[in-house]
C-alpha cells in the first residue's frame, strides 16, 4: 500500500468497521441481490444463555446472507462482534456450518457458490463450552470440503479481531483480508498474559499487540493475503478480486513443510523483533500480494 493516498477520498470513504454484521454482509453483494437466511425473526436463539442469566440475541450473533457477488452466487456469513464478543455457540456455529455445507452441496450439483466469512470473534462461547468447541471442529471440516470447489474468503475487519478456535478457521481459508485495525491470533493478549505472565506479554501494551497480532504484521508475514483500508469499497473490491482468482493452487494451510522449516529456523533463545520476522517469513511464501 502506498504511503501517499488521496486524503479527500479517504475522508469521504464509507467505514466498514463501523457497520454491524448485517450491514457488513449486505454491502459485499451486488446491489439488491441479497437475502437473509435464518434471520432474527426465525428466532434461532441460544437455549443455553438465558439459563445462565445472559440475554440471548434473536440471530445468535450470526448473520447468513445469500446473493450475488460479481454476478456469481455467493453465501456470506458474518459474526456480530458486539454480541458476546462474536463468540461461537451451538446455534451460531450450526448456522455457519450449515451455510458452508449448503454452499458445498450446490457446488457438487454444479451450481458454483462462493463463500465469504466475516469473522469478528473471540472463538468458542465459554457459556456453551463443548458445544462451541464441537462447532468449530465442524466449521473447519466444512471449510476443507468447500475450498476444493470455490475460494473460501475470510475477512477480519476489526475491531474485535479473530481469536481462539476461529483463528484456525481463518487459517484454513483460501484468502484472508485484513485491515490495520484488525487482529488475528490463536491466543489473545489477555490469555497469553494470564497464562504466561506479564513479562511474556503485556496485554495493556497496544503497540506490542498490534506489532504481533495486527493486520499489517499478519499481511507482511504472509498470513493474510490483502491489507485494505477501513473502506467498504476497498473491501468489496478485495472480495471481488479473490472470487475472480478462484481456488489457489496451494492453500496456505497445506504448506506444512514451508512453515515447519520457518519455525525450525527460529532461535527461541532470543527475543525476535516483529520486523525481523516479516523479513524471514515473507521471503518465500507462495501466496501473492494483491496490492
Amino acid at each position: 500500500m502506498s504511503e501517499q493516498r488521496n486524503d479527500t477520498k479517504f475522508i469521504n470513504r464509507q467505514s466498514f468497521i463501523e457497520l454491524n454484521a448485517r450491514e457488513r454482509a449486505e454491502i459485499l453483494f451486488d446491489t439488491g441481490t441479497s437475502r437473509e437466511l435464518a434471520g432474527p425473526f426465525d428466532r434461532m436463539e441460544s437455549p443455553w444463555l438465558a439459563m445462565q442469566g445472559v440475554t440471548p440475541q434473536a440471530d445468535d450473533g450470526c448473520v447468513v446472507m445469500k446473493g450475488k457477488i460479481s454476478g456469481q452466487s455467493t453465501v456470506v456469513i458474518a459474526l456480530e462482534g458486539a454480541f458476546q464478543g462474536g463468540s461461537l455457540g451451538e446455534v451460531s456455529g450450526e448456522k455457519l456450518t450449515a451455510a458452508l455445507d449448503l454452499a458445498c452441496a450446490d457446488n457438487e450439483k454444479g451450481i458454483r457458490t462462493n463463500a465469504v466469512m466475516l469473522l469478528e470473534t473471540g472463538g468458542v462461547r465459554l457459556q456453551e463450552a463443548n458445544l462451541g468447541l464441537a462447532s468449530i471442529a465442524e466449521i473447519m471440516a466444512s471449510i476443507l470440503v468447500l475450498r476444493r470447489h470455490v475460494p473460501v474468503i475470510c475477512i477480519i475487519a476489526g475491531t474485535v479481531g479473530c481469536f481462539g478456535g476461529m483463528s484456525l478457521a481463518a487459517g484454513l481459508a483460501s484468502y484472508v483480508v485484513m485491515t490495520r485495525e484488525a487482529r488475528l491470533g490463536m491466543n489473545g493478549p489477555e490469555v497469553i498474559e494470564q497464562t504466561s505472565g506479564v513479562e511474556e506479554f503485556d496485554s495493556s501494551d497496544r503497540a506490542l499487540i498490534w506489532a504481533i497480532h495486527g493486520g499489517e504484521q499478519r499481511f507482511a508475514m504472509g498470513l493474510a493475503d490483502a491489507l485494505v483500508e477501513d473502506d467498504a469499497q476497498q473491501m468489496v473490491e478485495a472480495v471481488q478480486s479473490f472470487i475472480a482468482k478462484g481456488v489457489p493452487a496451494v492453500h496456505r494451510s497445506s504448506e506444512i513443510a514451508l512453515y515447519r522449516s520457518h519455525i525450525a529456523a527460529l532461535d527461541a533463545s532470543r527475543q525476535w523483533d516483529p520486523k525481523e520476522l516479516r523479513a524471514i517469513w515473507k521471503a518465500d511464501v507462495a501466496t501473492e500480494d494483491t496490492q
Partner: peptide
C-alpha cells in the same frame, strides 16, 4: 411491516417489532 434494530451488546438492546 416488521422491523429489527439494535444488538445485544453492553449498554444496548435488540428490538423485534412485528
Amino acid at each position: 411491516k416488521r422491523a429489527h434494530v439494535g444488538v445485544v451488546g453492553s449498554g444496548d438492546l435488540e428490538v423485534l417489532l412485528e
